[in-house]
Design a protein around this nucleic acid. Sequence first.
DNA 1: TAGATTGTTAATCGATTAACAATC
DNA 2: TAGATTGTTAATCGATTAACAATC
Lengths: 228, 228
Amino acid sequence: MNKNMEHQFMPVKSVKRLSAYLCFLKSIGVKGLEYVSGAAIAEEFGFLPIQVRKDLAFAGVKGTPRRGFPTQKLTAAIESFLGWDNTQDAFLAGAGNLGAALTGYDKFEEELGLKILAAFDKNPRKFGSVMNGVEVLPIDKIGNLAKRMQVKIGIIAIPPEEAQAVVSIMTDAGIRGIWNFAPVNLHVPDSVIVENVGLSASLSVLTSRLREAVEMECASLTLKKLGE
Amino acid sequence: MNKNMEHQFMPVKSVKRLSAYLCFLKSIGVKGLEYVSGAAIAEEFGFLPIQVRKDLAFAGVKGTPRRGFPTQKLTAAIESFLGWDNTQDAFLAGAGNLGAALTGYDKFEEELGLKILAAFDKNPRKFGSVMNGVEVLPIDKIGNLAKRMQVKIGIIAIPPEEAQAVVSIMTDAGIRGIWNFAPVNLHVPDSVIVENVGLSASLSVLTSRLREAVEMECASLTLKKLGE
DNA sequence: TAGATTGTTAATCGATTAACAATC
DNA sequence: TAGATTGTTAATCGATTAACAATC
């Protein structure tokens, strides 16, 4: 096994930033600007230009000195790099409010290429109903159907208590990627990838930052008073 | 300005992990185990014990050698550290599917202390309706009401094109924290904190990891064949 | 050409991990 | 006491940033 085989993994943070750049590029793309510089992207996000250049280098686009990056090519390159240009089929576990939000959000299919083939729920009253164009089926069928249709992505939008059982069925059925919205830590085989959305964690980051800001203000206020 | 004033900011990653630990601690808390070790928590998440201990040290809980951390105290300490123990009032912009998911998710109020006081929408047909116990008001009223009620947190669950305008109204009205679900980069004054949920970014991380896994398998398969 | 921007190579910084002493 | 686990201090690793050469 030689060293050249070693695969360069993409840093998670770069992937996330690239996805943000893409969003921005699409918004300026409509303005018809032929080139965009790393500095311009950096400016928009408050990053340093060198960081943007590093991220873009990962995506493998070459820029032109003095001009920047060709907007169209750059957009296409990042899209391809993030895999937004080919469709991925997914099954959604949970036809509640969150499930409705996910099926109702056209951007996932149109821009990211995530095609939610069907939703699954344990509530019999929902069976056969259509949620934003996606049919709701009994949750018991999820394993067999995933295996038969070779679906590789499962979305977890069910209560945390029920999540692990469904995930196990999914992975047994050959699902390789889990997009998890439930506040539980899921256990899966090594070959399966779990991406946790972690809304509670995200909210915690916001509130802890807010508190830090308030503390800073109090501190500088006290300092000012003492200085008077 | 002496060095002692310098505030130790909490690393975002530690905050996120602590929030995950909390979820796990609550689930084992019901089992009535008096102590839990860093190693046990690490095991659950596949982390190294030292990382868990480092994170817990931030939260300021003292453990007992040979026994671990007192489950109750630890849970309470992390909750307090993350601010889950005091209520925060919030306004929600957007009464669509996502807004419904957020208002319908009781955990935010019960466990994290996030109280969504009202939802705001531009669709007149929704005015006055009640969404999971939260009243829907005209979006024009969000600024005045936020100022009057001194609301400090705003949640953005509206289309990206409309987000910046509403955010500007929010920050003018004194809102200090924005929890952003819209796929746009928001511009706010320095005193305001934005936490982006970035569902597209999250999905991109999953799909790029999946692709990396597939590539690795192909590579090792090729290698195997060559070796035969 | 001159100058702005890219891309590369090196330095810095912060987070993770290791080693080990302290403690119940 | 012996042994397991915490907590501290140092080493490593990876990501960010700086410096600067290459290039249009």
